[in-house]
Design a binder for these strands. Structure first.
Lengths: 67, 67
DNA sequence: ATCAAAAAGGCATTATATTGCACATTCAAA
DNA sequence: TTTGAATGTGCAATATAATGCCTTTTTGAT
């Protein structure tokens, strides 16, 4: 799971939930610029920023042993 | 999965692999201070920093739909 | 109890993530 | 094809993550 994949997952999930970037950014309490960068695989969000977005979308981050 | 849990997971994995913080920091190419903060649940690492460490430890980050 | 190595904290500096504003581009509906 | 909404960018300012040096605390072995 790299930054591009994270961005794709977030974007797809947002679209499936039919939310606009602007609203997701508000709900997650992050800047629109930040959300855009993440969805596009640009940027390098902090864990906290990522968590805020992920939480709103009903997604979760996991850390497991690579199989 | 919050920052504290991430720190615990990393620390436990590092200890299981019998690596010192100093060596893990070198292998992952992050500062020792940064690693310490992460393991202690302090700080707020960027995705990239987290990935560097996680990669060395044979762990992986996943983003999935919360069940 | 002593000692050495590992872990952790204080502080200052540097690098960079986050943000808002204004503007540009893309897209979908009328 | 126009037009408004959604998405995305350039730039500058601010917040904060990352780092190193030095010191302190903790841990584990003898």
């Amino acid at each position: 799971m790299n930054l591009v994949q994270v961005g794709e997952t977030i974007k797809q999930r947002r679209q499936r939930l039919d939310i606009r970037q602007n609203d997701l950014a508000d709900l997650a309490e992050v800047g629109l610029r930040t959300l855009i960068a993440i969805e596009n695989g640009t940027g390098n969000p902090s864990f906290e920023t990522l968590t805020k977005i992920v939480d709103v979308l009903g997604l979760e981050l996991n850390l497991t042993v690579k199989s």
